[in-house]
Design a protein around this nucleic acid. Sequence first.
RNA 1: GCGCCCGUAGCUCAGCUGGAUAGAGCGGUUGCCUCCGAAGCAACAGGCCGGGAGUUCGAAUCUCUCCGGGCGCACCA
Length: 653
Amino acid sequence: MYLELQLQLIQRVRDLLKRQYDVEFPRIVVDQPPNVGLGEYALPLSFELAKKLRKPPRKIAEEIVAGLGHVPGFEKFEVAGAGYINARINRQEAAKLLLRAGVARQGSVTGKKILVEHTSINPNKAAHIGHLRNAILGDTFVRLLQAAGAKVDVQNYIDNTGVQVADVVVGFLYLEKKGKSEIESLITVGNSKQPFDYYCWDLYAQVSRWYEESKENLKLRLQTLHDIERGGNEPAEIARLISNAIIRRHLETMQRLGIEYDFLPQESEILHLHFWESAFEQLKQKGVLYFETEGKNKGCWVMKRAGTKAAEEGAKGPDEDAKVIVRSNNTVTYVGKDIAYHLWKFGLLGRDFGYQRFYRYHDGRQVWISAESGEPDHPHFGGVNAIYNVIDSRQADPQNNVIEAIRGLGHAEQAENYHHFSYEMVALTPRCAMDLGYDVSEEDQKRAYIEVSGRKGFGVKADDLLDSLIAAAQKEVDTRHQEMPESERHGIASQIAIGALRYFMLKFTKTSVIAFDFKEALSFEGETGPYAQYAIVRATNIFRKAGLSAEDILAGQTDLRFLKEDDELWELWLRAGQLSSTVEQCIATTEPAYAAKYAFQLAQQFNNFYHKHHILTETDEEKKTFLLTTAAVVRRALIQSLELMGIDAPSVM
RNA sequence: GCGCCCGUAGCUCAGCUGGAUAGAGCGGUUGCCUCCGAAGCAACAGGCCGGGAGUUCGAAUCUCUCCGGGCGCACCA
């Protein structure tokens, strides 16, 4: 509701400026006045116009107000302060809009086909808190795009032929002397003391230490890596076995959080289906790559590194800054493979994966995985308008190189629609690390935070964290709902735990490093998911107690005149009406944290309202109906805002 | 050396496409459950917005510079 009116207002002002002053304003800034008593929109544009028109801002503001006349949906316009133009919404009309706020999405991404890649954990160990931030950010962004009317494919890239998988293969073959069948029995549920991804977590850390013992050990690593890349040998078969088992574990872990995928493209197929050869031809043809004949990169195919200045004509010597794409031994680097993969995403490669069914969710949704020869009947992936890669900020350089390669091939539009959804890492506070029993050097103890490291086996596993959260939530539920059957209490505890975890990962902006702290993450009070869930439960209880359904109340009649008289109540409605502007804001800035902020603030305002107005004992029937409608409108907006973040609204708490 | 990110209340963070009195949560102090559930509400205390200079009618927000912290810059992925 808020967004629609804002767009209408901007259009009217733009037309007026053109007509009255013959000026074009590319971007008209719209703020909100400090309090709703002054109106719902504030336009500071007269200040900027003052220079151009050589008139005092107040004078300009007055002229604009006079020129605007009546705008549908608005009550009036006023000049305030030194020259603000404040716009007042017609509250009753706006409220009617909000009451029947159907879906009718109309946003910047409506109808677009978008690919979001997230999670992309190396398939060699259990998922940890850093991976959770990635997956939760990605999944929430998917939900935001879908809410705005986009068609979204969710992909989880699997680097199944890289060093990390090779390391675990080395661990099994040379440290534990285990063969295929023994590994198979470790994978099979019931045959091992711990889940396979946990087992590999420890083995991976062990191998990393073992490498430091001798150069010989490192040789085995390289040899194993080459075997896996080539395929058709025992290490490669074991790698496939491990990778598939770990991917299943990751899918299960993420499923606990309500995170699902459509397609798992694997590096093995990018190699074996010769995606690179096709990309290489294009890159050579367009001159994006050139063969270096001197300097340190002699004998390699290289490209100009993104962000570096183009070498001037007279510059002597080779561009030592260049990024190597094909090594002098003719093998292709990671960025090279990534270029090919991203050409595929945009449908520019001229090749496709084979597809096989891999995993099926309870709701029937099917996850596909890449294969050399796939099933004949499969959905089509790739060939999208825009992509978002949820990848941590440390990979900004390689990501930019891929973008520049695509631009260099002449695909300027695709390069513009290639978004590196960059976020900062999750780290542990030294305190937290020591509590977990890790040895922390004196040097590290002085730091604000220590990076999580799979290689060192240093971190908090996703499943462990979720288990602790569920246990903590269940303790609370148990004391409040002794009458409930255990399974039901567990279900609610899970919803609360997921709410707490997902909200925790979303409340920080992407650019902020999360210094993980158990106390904060395990909290259900204050700015948390459960706080917002609790507000919904309170609203639900009102309707339950009154024997009414919130849906019926929304469909029924109510006297909206109270909105004219009470600024606080109107503010609540207004906030509820800002849900779609929040979605747009999140998408435009690729920042889901705004959705978290919005949900919390709305819940806060609702709790305030709940405390102030005792609805069920209200004696004025008209007022009572209106208050019930208010609760229903806010409840619906709260539920929708939590849905955007993948957080359920429990029936009770 | 070059590039990116961060520095706002005791702690953790919002606010940064310049705009009206700098916000929240936690922690601290103090109130509020015969009343729709207190996982809640209210109040108080707490800030040269890292330092300096500049642009502007106006700067936490933009520019420059310095200081402090983090992360990148492989013929690794």
